[in-house]
């Protein structure tokens, strides 16, 4: 792979850096050591393109993140109903937990459109709190999956209801 000199991501156009502020830390028990964060900040150095995330990119990104949550949640539901391999429960719960952890960053830039209602930013404190709750619940689910398998996960799945948040913050699907 050819290496092209380009600016590190964090030094790119101010808008991009500001859009995704580095204040968000992954909400995981295995927090990354500081050195790894430095490595991530330098991620742009050896990566090919100098970046500019515009509004559509922001919408696309958060759409992918939320859809991943949807797919993983659906998979877990299938597993809890015995319609998919029980052995996969810990994997999906872990993916759900990690993905939930990055959701807040996805919504940090105030870019209207897609399925996000303006309430997301108008009521940011509440939205943000709910995201935190989702992350906590997902982390808990992942732990249960590791230690107790499907049996431990099934009762907790309902604690991850998407509806409450979506009713307020997501554009209704026709």
């Amino acid at each position: 792979m050819l290496v092209y000199r380009s600016q590190p991501y964090s030094l790119l156009e101010p808008r991009t850096a500001a859009l995704y502020s580095e204040g968000n830390v992954l909400n995981r028990s295995t927090a990354l050591p500081r050195l790894a964060w430095a490595g991530i900040a330098l991620a742009g150095t050896l990566l090919p393109i100098s970046g500019h995330a515009d509004d559509q990119d922001v919408r696309d990104y958060r759409s992918h993140v939320m859809k991943t949550l949807g797919e993983q949640f659906a998979a877990l539901n299938q597993i809890s109903k015995g319609k998919a391999p029980a052995a996969d429960v810990a994997t999906h719960a872990e993916v759900l937990s990690i993905t939930a952890g990055v959701a807040k960053v996805a919504f940090t830039p105030k870019v209207l459109g897609g399925e996000a209602k303006p309430e997301v930013w108008d009521k940011w404190d509440d939205f943000s709190k709910r995201l935190d709750e989702m992350v906590a619940a997902a982390n808990d689910l992942a732990k249960s999956a590791k230690s107790g398998g499907v049996a431990a996960v099934t009762p907790k799945l309902s604690s991850l209801s998407c509806k409450g948040c979506h009713d307020v913050y997501r554009v209704q699907k026709k």
Binding site: L12, A41, I49, H52, A53, Y61, H64, I98
Partner: peptide, 18 residues
């Protein structure tokens, strides 16, 4: 998206893991 500069670099590792 991230690798082409159109996404938040801080989430790179998370996405690689998932």
């Amino acid at each position: 998206q991230i690798l082409s500069g159109a996404g938040p670099a801080e989430n790179t590792l998370a996405h690689m893991e998932t």
